[in-house]
Simulated assay, not measured.
Amino acid sequence: MPLTTLSPADARRMIDAGARLVDIRGADEHARERIPGALNLPLDRIDGLPRDGRIVVFHCRSGMRTTANAARLEAAASDAPAFLLDGGIDAWRGAGLATIADRSQPLEIMRQVQIAAGALVVTGVVLGLFVTPAFLALSAFVGAGLVFAGATGWCGMAQLLRAMPWNRGAAA
C-alpha cells in the first residue's frame, strides 16, 4: 500500500500531536535549511530510524525523493504509520510555515557540481570557438565525467568539491 501524502498544514497538525518528522535529505542540505524539530536521516541511513511506534512524516526538498523511495521509507517505518509531506520543505515554506535557514552554510554539493560542470562546459565551448578547437576537449571531459557519475553513482567532482576550503567544517 503506497504511503499517503499530507499537506503541510495536515503534517503540522500531526507533528504537533506527536508525529516524528524525518528529513531524508543529505546533511549538507539539512544544515542549510530545515524544518524545526526534524530528525535528519539521509536515505543511506534510513534503516537507523527509531522503531518506537510513533507516526512518521518523511520529507525531502520537493517531494520527489520521498515519492521515489516510498517503499523503502515504508519499510523503515514498519512498526508505525508513515506519511509523506506533499511538496517537501518547498511546500512547507510556501504554506508560510517556519524553517530554519543558515545561509552561512555552503551550497549543497550537488548544486556546486552543477555550477562547476556548467561553467567548465561553457568555458570549453567559448575557448574552443574563439581560441582553439582543442579546448572543446574540456567540455567532452566534463560530459564524460557526468555520464560516469550517473552510471556508477560516484562523482569525482563532488569528491573534489567536498575537499574545498569553503566546504570544510560544513555538515558531512
Rank of each mutant, 00 (worst) to 15 (best):
L41D: 00
P42G: 05
L84H: 04
L127Y: 04
D10W: 02
L3Y: 07
G153F: 08
N69W: 00
L41F: 02
A170M: 09
L146M: 15
L136Y: 15
A98L: 11
S139F: 03
D79C: 07
L138D: 02
F141A: 15
M157Y: 12
H30K: 06
A9K: 13
V125N: 05
G145D: 02
Q105D: 12
V126K: 06
M1A: 14
N69Y: 01
L161G: 13
A31W: 07
A68K: 10
A76K: 05
A91W: 06
E29Y: 09
G156S: 08
D86C: 04
V147P: 00
C155T: 08
R13K: 14
P8I: 07
D52P: 00
I15V: 15
A172D: 04
A82Q: 08
L6W: 05
S139L: 06
A101F: 04
Q114C: 02
A68W: 00
L43G: 05
V121T: 13
A76N: 02
S139V: 09
G63Y: 04
R168I: 13
S104F: 07
M14C: 06
E33M: 12
G156R: 10
V142K: 10
G169N: 13
R54K: 15
C155N: 10
R65V: 05
A77D: 00
D23R: 12
L84V: 08
G143N: 07
A171Q: 10
E29C: 08
D23S: 08
S139C: 08
C60Y: 07
A116M: 10
R13T: 15
R12I: 03
L146Q: 13
L3S: 08
R45G: 01
V131H: 05
P81T: 14
L129G: 14
N40Y: 07
M157E: 08
M164C: 12
